[in-house]
């Protein structure tokens, strides 16, 4: 109560009249935008045949695809953390020359159409590719048509989300705490574990969810690089595409699986990714 008289001068009144009003002409496109995002998903739901849904969702094809998708996406996400996390740190903290170019290169998979990514992987790691030929001749390893190819394609496409997310939060946080730790005598490794890592945790959560979601939805790079075979390389998006050729109801049911997973992902990630990190 003692501060009652000072409150008004410290911040603007929180009454409704002071809220920023959205100009009326902007409401129409805003509503169209919302409709464009929401209506297609509703359209998908109207195509669902409730009587066939349980059978379609538990078909061997759907279950194999779901299983493969979850597995590969989790592995790709883990791989993205193990490799992309350190890359984000290097990009944010080190002072190597040419770092700006490297940062731009990391963004490449974000802007490249995934099919192009798949072709790129194929011409590097395919049997006729530079590295793939070597792997096959020397170690007898073939990457295309294997589950590893799916993981590689997903990591290629999804890892940049993690790198960009973590790097952004590192730059926003600044290097002050790390500098303080260094002046107090902590080595780089100790500083990383005790200062940088705890700073990163909130951003890591939301970046992880985005990376996982992108890996789960991967289609173009996978079908180009890994091929399509049930249980080995046919992830949910590929299974939906193949099934839609002959049985749309089954494809729609599988799509429903991805919609549900997407909704769960949004609900889990929302507090940090959408409402700004705290």
């Amino acid at each position: 109560m003692r501060f009652g008289t000072r409150r008004g001068t410290r911040r603007p009144p929180a009454s409704a009249s002071a809220r920023v009003r959205v100009p009326v002409p902007l409401w129409l496109p805003a509503i169209v935008a919302l409709a464009l995002v929401v209506l297609p998903v509703l359209g998908l739901l109207t195509r669902i045949d409730p009587t066939r849904l349980p059978t379609l969702l538990t078909s061997p094809e759907a279950l194999a695809a779901l299983n493969l998708s979850l597995h590969t996406s989790l592995i790709s996400t883990a791989l993205s953390v193990v490799l992309g996390g350190p890359l984000a740190l290097v990009l944010a903290r080190s002072r190597l020359p040419g770092l700006r170019v490297v940062r731009a290169l990391v963004l490449l998979p974000l802007v490249l159409p995934p099919v192009v990514g798949g072709l790129a992987l194929l011409y590097l790691l395919g049997r006729t590719g530079v590295l793939g030929g070597l792997l096959e001749n020397v170690f007898g390893l073939t990457i295309p048509y294997t589950t590893s190819a799916v993981v590689l394609a997903q990591t290629f496409v999804a890892m940049p989300f993690l790198v960009v997310g973590l790097e952004g939060s590192l730059r926003t946080a600044g290097a002050r705490y790390e500098q303080v730790a260094a002046t107090l005598g902590a080595g780089p490794w100790l500083t990383f574990r005790r200062v940088t890592l705890p700073l990163l945790l909130p951003a890591l959560g939301s970046s992880l969810v985005l990376t996982f979601a992108r890996a789960l939805g991967e289609f173009g790079a996978t079908i180009t690089f890994a091929g399509s075979l049930r249980g080995t390389t046919r992830t949910l998006p590929l299974a939906i595409y193949t099934t839609a050729q002959s049985d749309v109801d089954a494809a729609v049911a599988m799509s429903l699986l991805l919609v549900v997973i997407a909704l769960v992902v949004i609900v889990v990630a929302r507090p940090k990714a959408v409402e700004g990190r705290s």
């Binding site: 194929l122 395919g126 049997r127 006729t128 295309p144 048509y145 890994a226 091929g227 399509s228 075979l229 049930r230 390389t233 046919r234 595409y241 193949t242 050729q245």
Partner: peptide, 20 residues
């Protein structure tokens, strides 16, 4: 037991042409 089942005959052909 194919290593991949494509949705389009040209994709099959391309995999052979590419030597994959």
């Amino acid at each position: 037991s194919p290593v991949s089942e494509e949705t389009d005959v040209k994709d099959v052909l391309n995999k052979v042409v590419a030597g994959e």
